[in-house]
Design a protein around this nucleic acid. Structure first.
Lengths: 210, 210
DNA sequence: AGGCTAGTGACAGTCACTGACAATTGACAA
DNA sequence: TTGTCAATTGTCAGTGACTGTCACTAGCCT
């Protein structure tokens, strides 16, 4: 990598960090693109040459995580049933995600930004849309594993939708709770996934007051 | 309703219709707020006094539908198991939705706008966020029916997440398919909901090639 | 060293949205 | 009916995200 490319990389990283730092301390809506550019001492125009928009910086880390999850699912042995493969792929991804993120920004900063994402309507909306896109890709992988056609058989999309729903519920709960550690999220996710069976059992009431 | 209020109502309706008409023909991003205001011959400022933003007009009808679904779920006999209550509430809502919408805009226009929503990233994002908010309310109702605490018991949120996931999958498929009738959506939804059980059965492969 | 080109800054313009103020118009009492 | 009050609207100015253009500078390559 020559000087030119190193400089570009440095500017990009600096912009990303400055943006996340500002979002985490001041809030997303309260931070202007000019603020971010000024913090790195480049023009606003340059910011837009590196990122498609303000959103992209805020959701940069979650996007990394998505790529890791996809790889993890691809690496699962085809003998595993779909839901089990999804479960293990996600639960075992977090270490890899942790690493990949740490090279870019401090984990602690990312966790603070994550709360900002969940509590900022505009960001949450885009985050959810990206999650939907991820689900579509996961459904494709599941279908492939099982030798099915995604458009002909509803089951791949349904399992993934169920799975994604549970993930999102746990993400929300975790981000509003007090245990903001990666372990906390992993345990919560595992616990909720274990509840899928019971939740689908027809009637709950006999079980709660036997 | 006196003259003043009637006039307001007329302006509001005209703005909504003009907006949807423009979105459906020209596209969402290609329509400016000035276009909408000009079509009704009011100032841009007036548009913003009636709607919080461009989005709100595009998502106005889906918001109506949400309210209907909530009412329908509340009306379900408490003896029904949660998933069954959700299923019936949604399937039986469409007639009521149909009626409520028809009073506001032609159904055919709404269907065209619906495709625009699904195919416009910015709109889809907000639509999904609203869906998440709806799910939270539905989970609350389910918990209440079952006499549970939403924050203590994961099951209400999980069933609703599963259910919502399936709904969203069918909405997407329907909006990209060719049978753009309300019956088409209802049948598709019913069929997909029937697949939830099979989709969760551990291994699919024995079933597909017996 | 000197030409080539990627990367940048400065500037102007569009579009969504907001605040402030003045003009208009319906409501209602005298 | 008329005058007063309050609600509604238009106009104007401003902010913030984003885009196109163009000249300029800095690293690259021979």
């Amino acid at each position: 990598m020559n000087l030119r490319e190193r400089k570009k990389q440095r500017t990009r990283d600096a912009l990303l960090r400055a943006a996340l730092e500002l979002f985490a301390t001041r809030g997303y809506e309260e931070t202007t693109v000019d603020d971010i550019a000024a913090a790195v001492d480049v023009s606003q125009r340059t910011f837009f040459r590196y990122f498609a928009g303000k959103e992209e910086t805020a959701l940069f880390v979650p996007r990394l995580a998505e790529a890791v999850v996809i790889d993890a699912l691809r690496a699962r042995p085809p003998s595993e049933p779909p839901l089990e493969a999804l479960r293990r792929a996600v639960l075992e991804s977090w270490d890899a995600i942790h690493e990949a993120v740490a090279e870019l920004v401090p984990i602690e900063l990312h966790l603070r930004v994550y709360r900002v994402i969940e509590s900022t309507p505009a960001l949450l909306a885009v985050h959810l849309r990206r999650a939907a896109e991820l689900e579509e890709r996961l459904a494709g992988i599941i279908a492939e594993r099982e030798g099915l056609d995604v458009d002909a058989d509803p089951r791949p999309r349904i399992v993934v939708a169920l799975f994604g729903g549970v993930i999102r519920v746990t993400e929300r709960l975790w981000s509003t709770g007090e245990d903001l550690t990666v372990e906390g999220l992993r345990d919560l996710t595992a616990a909720y996934l274990d509840q899928v069976g019971p939740a689908l059992a027809g009637n709950w009431r006999p079980a709660q007051s036997p």
